[in-house]
Design a protein around this nucleic acid. Structure first.
Lengths: 190, 190
DNA sequence: CTTCGTGATGTCAGTTGGTGACATCACCAC
DNA sequence: GTGGTGATGTCACCAACTGACATCACGAAG
């Protein structure tokens, strides 16, 4: 596994986020990102399929983690409880990185239509993965689809609340926000 | 309003759908579409922001129509009934064009990631528009967001079922499929 | 210590999406 | 018929991507 400076993909991710935040997505060229990371533009496209994908590196990992949590939920759990477990498990991954990173990343995504599109398709993919995991547990197709869709909606809302919450020592744990959002959902359907 | 051959935008839409279906989205260049429509590539971009947008021309119209129906719902209706009225009204627009057109269009979109992304952001825009319309009626923010999200989910599912249904004289009316899907939803939350 | 293979990177040429600037043409109003 | 106006054509250009091929670091085999 020979190479010059290890961690090219990580450097490209950092450089991209910094430049997108600084000059905006449109004002940043792939060559700019590659320069800052100390590689060429061609190398950028060897690590990421396109200029958008560089901000969505962890999405497969998140999907796998949530599907795993869903599959490992007790057999006695209802479909919605099962999905809730998967959504709660997502906080494991976000706890390993500084919240400030998530915040800056989301600010860039929210303000760039092209990145919003990519984010939406990632969530759609997550939805179908959760649906499939529910089907594997023997849940009825209609119920599975609706439960997965609802779970992703909860994730969406909770993530937005967590990002908007204050940071630092008096910050809120993502898992708590998810629990609160799930409570809200119960209240609505009651 | 002077021009050479009227209806350039319409010809471009037809040409794009035909070529996307025939050679695939990636196998079609904007120059190809423009050639078939009898214009230049530059003119294509004067009518449509990009290569994807050409398939989503009616979306603002659909959004306006649904928002209008939502706003005109009786004041006595619950938020979910209000949203249901908006979703039902969407069938008005689809009844004016051949179902075969919707089918071919959806086949292309479903098989092309870039077009799927664009479709998702259109539905996200529709969701926020419905949410805003509910807020204008005085509905609580949390309820409004959830109701809008649920309504769009119903539209999504119903549209998929309608597209998959047989065509021709023994075809199904879109409005009936929507009503059936709304019934399913009631059953799920019961 | 040399050689050799392998994987990551650089280089280069090319296609395509997309945009700005300017010229041009058809049509309508006066 | 003259002039204005809006849609179109033309041209030049940048940036996103891609395929083909060369090259370099490093580790394994001798």
């Amino acid at each position: 596994m020979g190479r010059w400076e290890p961690g090219a993909a990580g450097r490209l991710r950092e450089a991209a986020l910094a430049l997108y935040a600084e000059r905006g997505y449109d004002g940043t060229t792939v060559a700019d990102i590659a320069d800052r990371a100390g590689v060429t533009a061609r190398t950028f496209f060897r690590h990421f399929a396109d200029k958008r994908e560089v901000l969505f590196a962890g999405s497969e990992q998140l999907e796998q983690h949530m599907v795993k949590a869903l599959a490992e939920a007790p057999a006695s759990a209802t479909p919605m409880e099962t999905v809730a477990a998967a959504v709660l498990a997502s906080s494991d991954l976000f706890d390993t990185i500084p919240q400030e990173y998530s915040r800056r990343r989301q600010a860039v995504i929210s303000s760039t239509p092209e990145l919003r599109e990519r984010e939406l398709i990632k969530l759609a993919t997550l939805t179908t993965a959760l649906t499939q995991a529910l089907l594997d547990r023997g849940v009825e197709p209609d119920v599975a689809a609706l439960a997965a869709e609802t779970g992703v909606a909860v994730f969406r809302v909770a993530f937005g609340r967590w990002i908007a919450a204050p940071e630092g020592p008096d910050g809120v744990a993502f898992a708590d926000v998810i629990r609160s959002t799930l409570d809200n959902l119960s209240g609505l359907t009651a």
